[in-house]
Design a protein around this nucleic acid. Structure first.
Length: 551
RNA sequence: GGCCGCGUACCAAAGUGGUUGAAUGGAACGGAUUGCAAAUCCGUUGGACGCAAGUCCCUCGCCGGUUCGAAUCCGGCCGCGGCCUCCA
């Protein structure tokens, strides 16, 4: 058994065969930081995170590796270097003409922040200059990282120690400029306009494999444009599908000097440049070993820059199509035979209560909104990863509470007292049953079913069971999430964000008296009153009352 | 207009040719427990006949086809969604 994934590039299930099974390189397209990330964004990031967790788990076997693919048999184990960008360059709101016009999204975010501040929607301690795009992107990036860490996104947790794992394009303008220069030099890009005030386009006709990922041909793209591409905006391009690499525009809110003029980079070049900068060393080291000294160092046909690349389904075209084109044309000896990444995985979108998520329908949720309503990060994570990543998932509040209950039942096993519990993850029957569906295109739903079947059969969990559950949760990442600490008083145990107040404490004491006197009508009235305050109670062993918040 | 995907029982969601009347979780109902709840445990949840073992009928959007056999393969239709413009 070995891990197979659906490769968008070939439209087939294929084994994941990394260039170096001891260190898998993985690049994921991350968030833009003009606003808070919503749960749909997080579904995609969490799918990537779950894949990454499984690949680095000893439960995962990879094809074509000498030791049979089990990570733990290698002295150093298997590491996954997962990189996710945080896009902090402002792009344009109005992209009708693909030339970059309209309002800069960062400027728009600044305006929104100003309004929020006026309306008192922002905490008083937030000091940010809405005219400073760097301050805006930092503000939203920090909020994203906090949400991501709560949800157990390993890359965000690791980035606290190694920020290079979450690169920001404003720090890589130099790398982008180099790559653009290389594309011009190799005849895959061209600059138009008078010197110093130029726009640089990628020449799609120079790359025979353009369209391979999205299954579009240049003709199909042309016929599919349906009148939406204005001829007036196309005059300088050689082909309507040619896309922007650099734009001279001194009026842009973020701008940098380059040989083509002061301006800003196109939408796609950042990922190519950053993947190259952070993950490309290994591929070029392999190439240097294999090639003649003195020849220009370009990747050969079998040598991809990275092993895995992921994103949401909307990234397939144009973003990833363009990434492949740029990267291969800049880095490969035979561009049309390159693929940039060996494996391309794409996550389908999330629906909410059966409908497309939208602010107008009122079914638009950010992670932090849900947290503020008392949703626990573990439950949200499970709800977002439990559906197969290539199915359209339906997020529901019902599903969220289902997940919370599942987690509560699993935690009983997870929290069993530890002890002498040596288990072999490769042969343990529960773990092999859990890992089997995951090897088949990361079938998380199937794996969860195995966990439930197993947990149902446990009368009282042992140290061994706890050890097994830890292996499981290293992949799912739902138990190792922050849970609000319970506040205990003489009479109550407050959980799930509920806090003791004099009023509540008084009611609990009154209820205890009523119950003692067997005045159950009075006792039930108090429960109703607490319910009206948004609190649920239940009697727990020890004579105390557990107080929680109503979902 | 072009390219692509999906539709499973009350809900969510696995399963992609036979042991599947359909995993798993929730929900509902019955029982144990509780003053009542909550939590937990046991059982039931397409229909008919039967005390039962069981037998028969109808099921995986709809219609048709391939096959000894289909939720699973093929065709048509309907519905939903994605991309073709920034978007996970």
């Amino acid at each position: 058994m070995h891990l197979t994934l659906y490769n968008t590039l070939t439209r087939r299930h294929e084994p994941l065969v990394p260039a170096d099974p001891a260190n898998v390189s993985f690049y994921s397209c991350g968030p833009t930081v003009y606003d808070d990330a919503h749960i749909g964004n997080f579904r995609s990031f969490l799918a990537a995170d779950t894949l990454r967790r499984f690949v680095q788990s000893p439960l995962c076997r990879l094809a074509g590796t000498p030791d049979g693919g089990s990570a733990h048999q290698s002295p150093t184990g298997r590491t996954v270097t997962h990189v996710m960008n945080i896009t902090d360059v402002g792009h344009m709101t109005d992209d009708d003409n693909a030339d970059g016009s309209g309002e800069d999204k960062m400027a728009e975010a600044g305006r929104r922040l100003t309004e929020a501040k006026k309306a008192g929607m922002l905490p008083a301690d937030v000091q940010i200059d809405p005219k400073d795009p760097y301050a805006i992107s930092r503000f939203y990036a920090d909020r994203f990282l906090a949400d991501a860490r709560a949800l157990g996104l390993l890359v965000a947790i690791q980035a606290e120690r190694d920020p290079s794992l979450m690169p920001r394009p404003t720090q890589f303008i130099g790398a982008m400029v180099q790559m653009i220069a290389m594309l011009i030099k190799r005849g895959h890009a061209y600059a138009v306009g008078e010197p110093g005030k130029q726009v640089v386009y990628f020449d799609v006709q120079s790359f025979a494999a353009y369209g391979r990922l999205s299954n579009n041909t240049l003709e199909a793209l042309r016929s599919g444009e349906g009148g939406r591409v204005l001829a007036a905006n196309q005059s300088q391009k050689k082909h309507p599908a040619d896309f922007l690499l650099w734009k001279h525009d001194p009026s842009h809110i973020m701008k940098w000097p380059t040989p083509w003029g002061e301006g800003y980079p196109g939408w796609h070049i950042e990922c190519s440049a950053m993947a190259m900068a952070r993950l490309g060393q290994a591929a070029f080291a392999r190439e240097a070993k294999a090639s003649q000294p003195g020849t220009p160092l370009l990747l050969g046909d079998e040598n991809s820059l990275i092993d895995l690349h992921s994103g949401g389904e909307d990234n397939i075209f144009p973003h990833h199509e363009c990434e492949i084109a740029q990267s291969c044309c800049a880095l490969c000896r035979n561009p049309a035979r390159g693929s940039f990444a060996r494996m391309w995985v794409h996550c389908r979108h999330l629906m909410v209560e059966g409908e497309k998520m939208s602010k107008r329908k009122g079914n638009f949720h950010t992670a932090r909104d849900l947290f503020a309503r008392g949703v626990l990060p573990g439950a949200l994570r499970l709800e977002l990863i439990r559906t197969h990543y290539r199915s359209q998932a339906n997020f529901t509040m019902q599903g969220l509470s289902d997940c919370q209950r599942m987690i509560d039942r699993w935690r009983r096993v997870y929290d069993a007292p530890p002890g002498d519990a040596a288990i072999d993850p490769l042969t343990h029957p529960v773990l092999t049953a859990f890992a089997a569906p995951l090897h088949e295109d990361l079938n998380v739903a199937g794996a969860i079913a195995e966990v439930n079947t197993w947990v149902n059969g446990i009368a009282s969990p042992t140290a061994q069971d706890a050890a097994v559950m830890r292996h499981i949760d290293a992949v799912l990442g739902v138990l190792d999430r922050p849970v609000p600490t319970a506040t205990a008083t003489a009479i109550g145990v407050y959980v799930g964000g509920a806090q003791p107040t004099d009023e509540v404490e008084g009611l609990l004491a009154e209820r205890a008296q009523a119950r003692k006197a067997k005045d159950f009508a009075a006792s039930d009235r108090i429960r109703d009153r607490l319910a009206a305050m948004g609190l649920t109670i239940k009697d727990v062993p020890g004579g105390k009352v557990e107080v929680g918040r109503r979902a």
